[in-house]
Write a protein that binds this DNA or RNA. Structure first.
Lengths: 301, 301
DNA sequence: CAACAGTGGTGCGATTTTTGCACCACCCAC
DNA sequence: GTGGGTGGTGCAAAAATCGCACCACTGTTG
């Protein structure tokens, strides 16, 4: 919206060189030079004194620079304000998350958030961890919550928390009450676990595949509620993090026993945002609230 | 230097209509419309609500408008400052004037002016009244001082003063001491007057040509100093305004006797500037000082 | 003293952006 | 309906912009 000259002029003044500024601005020195010359011509004054080493601001140039920087500053401040207002107006936050978060801390965070921004609507989509990251990178989702094993260049990790895998069992199950279990221990039970939409590409699937002890899965599902029902119905034991079953464990309906296995015990869940576009205050607050809810949970026992 | 959008947006907000604004801005509504749409798109917000009657600022638009007007304001103020500095730097005022002023009040005005703007150089060119006007109209001269009989559309008259023609005589001349003289009275004496470079086109020549009483001119010259010498040497009587001989009359070396003749008695001398380009503060001051010096002179006796 | 590396400035052709005409869809008053 | 007003759009012409390949100049360096 503002003329490109403002940026050019500011940078040239900083670098005291048209060519250096052009380099930093990723344009040819011709462009920068012409913009400067054009304004000098229109104003009828020299903005810079030309020296063999580069350029040097004249007194008039100093005054103009002051004006330009003032404009740029004011624009930035106003832009932030407008961005906030737009997002308050549009009133939408798009969250992509792994399913466990969607039934765990996310509802609580959303309720807290709604008290402050009652007019902002929120959409929550559950997806596989890899897809969550992908959607955030593409800009489809503004906030993503997923396991942190994949590093995408276009996303930024705001905060993370250790979320080791374990087994979810009924309180009357033989494994209940144990401080931890090994892969050996659970190999005799039928598993209820997440379905792999991609067919073995998921990191969790890969971790399971590398186990020396084969695990037999009885029930695959991408619906956490179904897996809960199955576990409660004694159709198998769950292989999940504690997140999605936090309330049930707190109530005593289920028990969570950490699994001793390097890869699955070191899994961490994080909050992601796009690294290419800044997030506004409302989304930032949502992230903060999510992080707070997440940190409140005890996931390792 | 600033984006044209600022002007467009400001005007659309004022007119509450894109088409009306475009009309006032002398551009097609397409351009204005597209600029608005473009910024709306880039910012991701609506600047205006569209109504059947026109457009109406949104809350975001109001904020942006505030910013834009701030920028425009600040730019205007800075531009004035820069214009002043440029003219202080460039340091030149080009004055075209009739010769009498150049030896009369102009030197005094220049001295006064130099006390305030010591670094501004001044060039003074004497010329025929018609040429002075022409040079100012063309922009060759920034300030012109000439008789006010020709109205050129591109020049602006800043101030004027009555400067009636009369005769300049030695104190021992028969006409000395008279309150006024008629054409009849001077017809018996040989005249010293300005040369007509164009051959009869000058208004003063025309005025003389229309006289029923023929006047015989003995000496034509475009050098005021020469005419003074001739008058003092008794080679004739001068036919001029009092301006160029003000100091000599004040000292008593010469006497000025107004001429009773409608055309020549009603002549006025004025200060002209270009009507198409604004003058800066320094030039304005010069004009003011000139006007002050001119008004100080008593030219009718 | 010559070669060189660095600077800002420029001519020119390719490219991108801007512009305005001629429309369209819509709304309102009559 | 109809006519006059609004904002929005497809398209082709016009204008501005851009970047390459230079030039002139200066200060440094062998």
């Amino acid at each position: 919206m503002h003329s490109i000259f403002l940026k050019y002029f500011d940078e040239v003044a900083r670098q005291k060189s048209i060519r250096k500024a052009a380099l930093l601005l990723n344009v040819s020195s011709t462009s920068v030079n012409r913009k400067i010359l054009s304004v000098e011509d229109r104003l009828g004054v020299s903005l810079f004194d030309r020296t063999p080493e580069g350029v040097e601001l004249t007194s008039v140039g100093t005054i103009l620079l002051e004006h330009c920087r003032k404009v740029l500053h004011d624009y930035e401040r106003m832009k932030i304000l407008i961005d906030d207002m737009r997002d308050l107006r549009t009133g939408h936050i798009n969250i992509h998350t792994i399913d466990s978060i969607a039934v765990g801390c996310l509802p609580r965070a959303m309720i807290e958030f709604g008290k402050i921004y009652p007019d902002i609507s929120i959409s929550v989509t559950t997806a596989q961890p890899e897809d969550v990251v992908q959607q955030v990178a593409e800009g489809t989702a503004e906030i993503g919550i997923a396991f942190t094993f994949s590093q995408h260049p276009d996303i930024r990790l705001l905060s993370e928390k250790s979320a080791p895998f374990g087994v979810l069992v009924r309180p009357d199950h033989p494994l209940a009450g144990r401080a931890s279990v090994t892969v050996e221990d659970i190999s005799h039970y039928r598993l209820v676990r997440t379905i792999d939409a991609r067919g073995g590409k998921s990191i969790i699937d890969q971790a399971i595949a590398t186990l020396v002890t084969p695990l037999s899965t009885h029930i695959f599902t991408n619906t956490l509620f179904l897996s809960k029902e199955m576990i409660l119905a004694n159709r198998g034991i769950g292989l999940y993090t504690k997140i999605g079953f936090y309330d049930e464990v707190e109530r005593g309906d289920l028990e969570f026993v950490p699994l001793i296995q390097e890869m699955l015990a070191n899994i961490r869940v994080g909050i992601f945002v796009s690294a290419t576009s800044a997030i506004d205050t409302a989304k930032r607050l949502m992230c903060d609230m999510l992080a707070k809810e997440m940190s409140r949970m005890r996931l390792d026992s």
